[in-house]
Design a protein around this nucleic acid. Structure first.
Lengths: 142, 142
DNA sequence: CTTGTTGCAACAGTTTCTGTTACATCAAAG
DNA sequence: CTTTGATGTAACAGAAACTGTTGCAACAAG
């Protein structure tokens, strides 16, 4: 299992919830979502649980339970989904502290933090520019 | 070992080579670089080996061997380093094919590929805007 | 009370990355 | 030509993260 597919799974689930809602279905069970994503229902519960804690979806328990969007799909951005699923940032610093007696070892971590911060900022700006409604529209166009 | 520190290790090594070169040292051994990064020399050889294959550094073998920059530090961008070390992209698609009979499962992969491609593009543009000389300057300012 | 669903813990399997050891290869220096 | 000091690389261990799976408690509608 190489790549991080958490954003993909969560976005897929949200797009499917948005389409179901448009079709008049009030809720979807994690099993119904799992059938579309083609994975185990527990994976979906974990993912949608993250989104519930972030306030993006709502859940009804007991018999006849299931998931629904907490907001309009136009108002949910991929940045919110990204933050909700807690994926790790693309770049990490040194695992062990570099040699502080070397001028490079001493100052490189704050320097790289600055660069990585700028990269993450443009990434977040791009994710904030795409909504679940956008993804669903592009998805149905294929 | 959680985060991906390959770009960090490689950039650290390049900045250290740039500073050594400015100080009149022709080459650094992988052990000298490892002492600054605070890791094992084999890690440095692997990383600098990637950079050598990408044409960013040169190596001299035999006795008195070592590494040196192949170009001016102003001309080496972090984007080239990023490509050289072959880090995996930040987002991955589904591990298994989603259900093609579901409209969402059918069209979501090309839709997400488009979004992820745009994110990677802005990331690359930001990395291309920073050179090893920039990193070294900010490093020495700390 | 029954039924169907979520919540969650526990665990296995895979992958990726760092770190380490060992040894072959190579080229400069004497 | 031998010695010496370095790179190149394979092999392996250990840690961490993620997906997937099973099992069961908690819960609420009917």
């Amino acid at each position: 299992m190489a790549a991080n597919s958490r954003l993909t799974i969560a976005t897929h689930a949200l797009a499917w919830l948005a389409l179901a809602q448009r079709r008049g279905l009030e809720v979807l069970t994690s099993e119904q979502v799992a059938a579309s994503v083609h994975t185990n229902p527990v994976i979906i519960r974990r993912s949608l649980g993250d989104l519930r804690r972030a306030g993006l979806v709502e859940v009804r328990r007991g018999a006849g339970a299931g998931w629904s969007l907490a907001r309009e799909p136009e108002g949910i951005t991929l940045l919110e989904v990204y933050d909700a699923v807690g994926a790790q940032p693309p770049f990490g610093l040194h695992h062990t502290e570099p040699n502080p007696e070397c001028p490079v070892g001493h100052g490189i971590r704050p320097a790289l933090s600055g660069v990585y911060g700028r990269v993450e900022q443009v990434m977040r700006r791009e994710l904030a520019d795409t909504s679940i409604a956008d993804v669903l529209r592009e998805t149905l166009a294929n």
